[in-house]
């Protein structure tokens, strides 16, 4: 009995010491997992997940502090990819985190804009140009559709314009055959 206790204690001590040594000596800053998670996130930097940007959310997921289904722009598709990467069970988008919307870009009504620069400061990707008391405009190619510019606007002159399908960005759809239509 005493043997058993001594042996197990010794084993635990040796392994514990080795692990402790390794934890100090092989300490690495940064987590490659964060990068992989960040690569899946859509980078809208919208903060709808409750974190200030995509990278902080990726860090929270990697640390196990956040669920994987808090990102509305990524949608169910993004949550599925995160579940695959992390070996978690897939969860549909959390209900309180809004519904998936079609991709849209912000559009400033130039008649109403008073040039207050508040939206410029709010834009996480610097996609709004203009200066004080000058009209502002959105560079639509760079806009991620995060809607962060909507609340600060004192005159509510920013609207979200859904991206229209045109001949140049139209995509072939998944073929639907007659049999599938019936089923």
């Amino acid at each position: 009995m005493l043997n058993a206790i001594i042996v197990m204690t010794a084993l635990a001590l040796v392994l514990g010491a080795a692990l402790g040594y390794a934890a100090v000596h092989f300490k690495v800053e940064g987590n490659p997992l964060v990068e992989q998670i960040d690569a899946i996130l859509p980078q809208t930097q919208c903060g709808q997940c409750g974190f200030p940007g995509c990278l902080p959310y990726a860090e929270a997921i990697a640390a196990g502090e956040a669920e994987i289904n808090l990102c509305p722009p990524g949608g169910d598709e993004g949550a599925r990819k995160l579940a695959d990467l992390l070996g978690h069970e897939f969860k549909p988008l959390a209900a309180e985190h809004a519904v998936e919307k079609p991709r849209a870009v912000a559009l400033i009504d130039e008649q109403t804009c008073i040039g207050c620069t508040l939206c410029i400061q709010a834009c996480p990707v610097d996609a709004i140009v203009g200066s004080a008391k000058q009209m502002h405009t959105v560079i639509s190619d760079l806009c991620t559709g995060c809607e962060l510019c909507l609340p600060p606007c004192p005159v509510d002159c920013i609207i979200m314009e859904p991206l229209a399908e045109t001949v140049s960005n139209w995509k072939w759809k998944y073929p639907v055959t007659a049999i599938r239509k019936v089923a």
């Binding site: 960040d38 996130l41 980078q43 809208t44 930097q45 995509c54 996480p124 990707v125 760079l142």
Partner: peptide, 16 residues
């Protein structure tokens, strides 16, 4: 295309 847009947004966010 989406991936490129995300990379661009990330770079701009980091630069900001």
């Amino acid at each position: 295309e989406e991936r490129r847009a995300a990379d661009r947004a990330r770079a701009r966010f980091e630069f900001r």
